[in-house]
Simulated scan of single mutants.
Amino acid sequence: MNNLTTQQTIRVSKLALMSFISFFGLLMMYSNLTDYPANYEYVAHILSMDTTRDKLRYGYRAITSPMLHHRIYWLIITLEVIYTAFCLMGTYQLYRQLNASTEAFHDAKKYALIGLLIAIFVYYICIQVVGVEWFNMDQSEAWNYADWATQILDFIFPALIYISLKNEK
């Protein structure tokens, strides 16, 4: 442990953060694929806006087609698979370049950064912007995951900034 430098610790911390996010992505994929009916029900209620307070006022925004519910849910699952795959590749690339030059380690971040950006798209654009702002998910007592998405973003966005910094030598 005495031979571990601050710069090596920074590199290891970036690798660790990516492994945490990759693990989270794997768990999300597993949950969505193995418990499809329960997660589909969530998506269907949000899209249908059947549990929101101002359903009559904003009902024109609702998507009530079960076929579209399934397709949108599969789009979300696909995006989760893609961001997890990029995060896993990024984690592996960081691991491979852990003791390489500063330039090589920095270049190894590209897959990780792409994965993190896609994750931000899923949890910010899909859930926070579309789910909350368009489908009024925050007005549903039973089907409101806005706080959950915020907690994920509160981890992923700073991780994106930290990992992208070129401060390791």
Results as ranks from 00 to 15, higher is better:
residue 165 L to H: 09
residue 112 A to F: 03
residue 59 G to R: 11
residue 147 D to T: 15
residue 93 Q to K: 08
residue 69 H to D: 12
residue 54 D to V: 06
residue 96 R to E: 06
residue 152 I to S: 10
residue 162 Y to E: 00
residue 26 L to Y: 06
residue 143 W to I: 11
residue 141 E to Q: 12
residue 19 S to Y: 12
residue 117 L to R: 06
residue 47 L to F: 04
residue 93 Q to S: 09
residue 161 I to D: 00
residue 97 Q to V: 09
residue 97 Q to M: 14
residue 117 L to N: 04
residue 142 A to M: 13
residue 157 F to W: 09
residue 131 G to Y: 13
residue 158 P to T: 03
residue 47 L to C: 06
residue 30 Y to Q: 01
residue 101 S to Q: 02
residue 126 C to V: 15
residue 78 T to Q: 02
residue 59 G to H: 03
residue 20 F to E: 01
residue 115 G to Q: 10
residue 135 F to H: 02
residue 17 L to V: 05
residue 141 E to S: 15
residue 50 D to T: 03
residue 138 D to K: 11
residue 61 R to S: 12
residue 109 K to Y: 07
residue 61 R to H: 13
residue 10 I to V: 13
residue 28 M to A: 14
residue 125 I to E: 11
residue 35 D to Y: 06
residue 88 L to Q: 05
residue 148 W to I: 10
residue 28 M to D: 11
residue 65 S to A: 00
residue 32 N to M: 15
residue 107 D to Q: 14
residue 155 F to Y: 13
residue 110 K to R: 13
residue 149 A to T: 04
residue 76 I to E: 01
residue 9 T to E: 09
residue 138 D to S: 15
residue 120 I to E: 06
residue 15 L to G: 01
residue 131 G to I: 08
residue 123 Y to T: 02
residue 61 R to I: 11
residue 168 E to K: 04
residue 112 A to P: 03
residue 160 L to W: 15
residue 51 T to K: 14
residue 148 W to N: 14
residue 167 N to G: 12
residue 1 M to F: 02
residue 5 T to L: 07
residue 7 Q to F: 08
residue 41 E to P: 00
residue 161 I to W: 13
residue 65 S to H: 06
residue 152 I to F: 14
residue 81 V to A: 10
residue 128 Q to K: 00
residue 20 F to T: 07
residue 141 E to M: 10
residue 155 F to A: 07
residue 149 A to M: 05
residue 40 Y to I: 03
residue 27 L to C: 00
residue 98 L to M: 10
residue 40 Y to T: 05
residue 61 R to D: 09
residue 122 V to I: 07
residue 29 M to G: 01
residue 15 L to D: 06
residue 21 I to N: 01
residue 10 I to F: 10
residue 49 M to F: 10
residue 103 E to Q: 04
residue 122 V to F: 04
residue 78 T to S: 05
residue 19 S to G: 08
residue 86 F to C: 04
residue 122 V to G: 07
residue 159 A to P: 06
residue 152 I to W: 13
residue 30 Y to C: 00
residue 9 T to S: 12
residue 62 A to H: 03
residue 162 Y to K: 08
residue 45 H to N: 08
residue 77 I to F: 08
residue 83 Y to F: 13
residue 129 V to S: 11
residue 66 P to W: 00
residue 92 Y to H: 00
residue 37 P to N: 08
residue 115 G to R: 05
residue 115 G to T: 10
residue 152 I to M: 14
residue 84 T to K: 07
residue 130 V to H: 03
residue 75 L to P: 00
residue 160 L to R: 02
residue 11 R to D: 02
residue 21 I to C: 01
residue 11 R to N: 05
residue 58 Y to W: 12
residue 17 L to P: 00
residue 92 Y to C: 00
residue 144 N to P: 12
residue 23 F to G: 14
residue 131 G to A: 05
residue 114 I to S: 03
residue 56 L to Q: 13
residue 45 H to Y: 04
residue 7 Q to L: 01
residue 79 L to A: 09
residue 163 I to S: 02
residue 87 C to I: 03
residue 168 E to I: 06
residue 137 M to G: 10
residue 36 Y to A: 07
residue 5 T to F: 12
residue 157 F to N: 02
residue 2 N to R: 06
residue 130 V to G: 02
residue 132 V to R: 08
residue 72 I to Y: 15
